[in-house]
Write a protein that binds this DNA or RNA. Sequence first.
DNA 1: TATTGTTATACTCTATAACTATA
DNA 2: TATAGTTATAGAGTATAACAATA
Lengths: 148, 148
Amino acid sequence: MATSRTDPLTLEVVQLIGSVVARYYEEYEHAAAEHSLTGAQARLLGLLSLEPMAMRKIAQKLKCEPSNVTGIVDRLEARGLVERRPDPADRRVKLAAATATGLTTAALLRDSLDFAREPLAELSDAERRALRDMLQRMLGSGNGPDGG
Amino acid sequence: MATSRTDPLTLEVVQLIGSVVARYYEEYEHAAAEHSLTGAQARLLGLLSLEPMAMRKIAQKLKCEPSNVTGIVDRLEARGLVERRPDPADRRVKLAAATATGLTTAALLRDSLDFAREPLAELSDAERRALRDMLQRMLGSGNGPDGG
DNA sequence: TATTGTTATACTCTATAACTATA
DNA sequence: TATAGTTATAGAGTATAACAATA
């Protein structure tokens, strides 16, 4: 397993990462709430702002059951942020897509997530590169790139 | 506000932080589920594993309404992981405290959170210190220490 | 009168299982 | 028969408002 996973410095960094995660989540929920969205709705809308997607694929990306996606898309659709389209290639499939309003909301949402961005401005370019490399290594161990 | 918040490197780091957050959350929920706990239950138990705490204080720490704490403590209490005690100093207050079983479960939970720890072992001591300092700076901007 | 914890209510998210329509 | 999406159901988390006990 590990050599010195429990040294004080490592434990301190682990705790800091936990704090960053908690802080990021709070900010995300808060930003979503400012647009009267739940966190799950905001995440789904953010996903669709990149490209339309089959319901099943959304569930995979969000790592939840397909039945949940139905409800979340229902609520976003009722507010005009998302719409369902048929898939010409397979009549079983429904593609969920962000509407123009949905894209605008998604962009506003992204802009309001300043937590992760603001403090980064305090870091030098070299530090940001170092941080990037370390985070990539953290994500790389035991987990491929986002894949699809 | 900022000078160059939208340069490619910063955006890349922001996205990486988002990935780390998502990954951390998954691992946390998974670790909790292995002990038949929800994420909220695991967080509350982790909090009580440090020290007994008034219901109201728990709500502040978890940043939720006090009425929610009642239900979560109810479920943990029903499983023998937590108990309610009177506060000698104020008879309105109920102190929630982890039982011996609860403390054991909390310890197991902490140990199974290897995601944040394992990859850190790949970093050099200097890198870990640099990461710690950067994370501290990130958390420091616009947010004091945990406080109470 | 204010505070602590609880209860009642309603909504959202979640997983499971059964269902419809396509393939 | 297998797959995509939905529906039905039940449990959990969440916020709001109203309540009892205590301060």
